[in-house]
Computed example of a mutant assay.
Amino acid sequence: MEEVPQECPGTGSAQAGRGASCQGCPNQRLCASGAGAAPDPAIEEIKEKMKTVKHKILVLSGKGGVGKSTLSAHLAHGLAEDENTQVALLDIDICGPSVPKIMGLEGEQVHQSGSGWSPVYVEDNLGVMSVGFLLSSPDDAVIWRGPRKNGMIKQFLRDVDWGEVDYLIVDTPPGTSDEHLSVVQYLSAANIDGVVIVTTPQEVSLQDVRKEINFCHKVKLPLIGVVENMSSFVCPRCKKESQIFPPTTGGAEAMCQDLQIPLLGRVPLDPQIGKSCDKGQSFLTDAPDSPATLAYRSIIQRVRAFCHRHPSHEEEQRSTS
């Protein structure tokens, strides 16, 4: 049996979608359609636009429903607690945009200015962009094929007037599909600082997370680490800890040790998290003493430290010039 190379040639390669390692890849046709063609001019335009954004963080998950958008929102809330830090949250979950609801921005509309689309602001230093702002109703279904999704992501990155931003957090859909390839390709020249991957403790979730980690390695995305959501539940009355999703294979900790990647933290179940998200409020301020809040804050601190240890491409250019 012929051995298949494990290395992905990358979306910008002439071999994209055509190499031996591309056989069987679900995105083979998408990559092959652009292989050998002239580089998309939007990549350079986006690079220019992103010069005002210091750090770019992607939040990924293998499965849906593991709390990825919730983590993205609270990562943004936590970083924006420093009034001197400008934060942007971009929701590219085109078919399931939950960020407007979680951030308390349902019903808001995108406004156009001379410099492009303006984000919708939660606070003066926290701006949000989502396809949810372009729908006439939160119940509207987005029934788009890949090219239209990719075009929307391109617009978000190229045409939104983000301004001077310290952190851009990108909330992605589950899996490794068109949206992920698009954001990696369009930000390839602008440099992505790293990826936070969200999971729950059970093996059915970890299985998909391993695929996500493999995807990151293949497209050369730096891994900041893994967050284990819903790790346990502490009863507010008796304080007894229960495992709602038993870690049959050791949970995220065992997986991270096996793959030699950082475990950023475990966030316990707290019913108040769901309530805060439904109300569009920050759980960090609603329940400041919750063990889940302490876990979130520790994760946020580790993400901030990672970004500061790995200066952005623009900062590196400034320091060497």
Rank of each mutant, 00 (worst) to 15 (best):
K49P: 06
I94N: 03
P26K: 13
C95W: 10
G225H: 05
V227K: 00
V99N: 02
G194D: 08
V170T: 06
C238K: 04
A287P: 11
S205Y: 02
M152G: 14
I94S: 04
I224K: 03
I102P: 00
C235G: 01
M230Q: 08
A38F: 06
A42K: 07
S205L: 01
Q301P: 03
D139P: 11
E314G: 00
N214V: 03
Q317P: 02
G17R: 00
K154S: 10
L134T: 12
I143D: 04
A189Y: 03
P173K: 05
I299G: 07
G265E: 02
C25W: 01
E123F: 12
P201G: 10
N150M: 11
V122C: 07
Q257G: 07
M255A: 10
L157V: 14
G163K: 06
G114Y: 07
Y121M: 09
V128R: 07
D140L: 05
P288Q: 00
T70A: 09
K56C: 11
E106H: 01
V209S: 04
G274R: 06
D171H: 12
H111E: 13
R148Q: 14
F233V: 05
K149E: 00
E44I: 08
E45R: 14
D289W: 02
Q6S: 15
S61T: 13
G78C: 05
P41I: 10
Y186H: 13
T200V: 14
G265T: 03
G10T: 13
G250H: 04
V303S: 03
D166W: 01
D82V: 09
V204Y: 00
M1H: 15
K49G: 07
W117E: 13
S69A: 10
P173Q: 12
N27H: 02
G67Q: 12
V4E: 15
A80K: 07
I92A: 02
E315S: 14
S282N: 04
T85Y: 05
P5G: 04
R237Y: 11
D278G: 06
I213C: 01
P9T: 14
P173W: 04
Q15F: 11
P247R: 12
G36E: 05
S282A: 09
S242K: 08
N27S: 12
V183F: 07
S13V: 12
K240F: 06
Q257F: 01
R148A: 12
D124P: 06
Q202E: 13
I299M: 11
K218T: 09
A14W: 03
K218Y: 01
E2N: 13
Q281G: 00
Q109E: 15
E315A: 15
S290R: 09
E3C: 11
H74I: 04
S298L: 06
G17E: 08
G225D: 08
G280N: 03
D82L: 04
I94D: 04
E2M: 14
F133T: 08
K49S: 14
P247Q: 11
D278Y: 08
E212Y: 03
E48I: 10
G10E: 12
E2K: 15
E45Y: 00
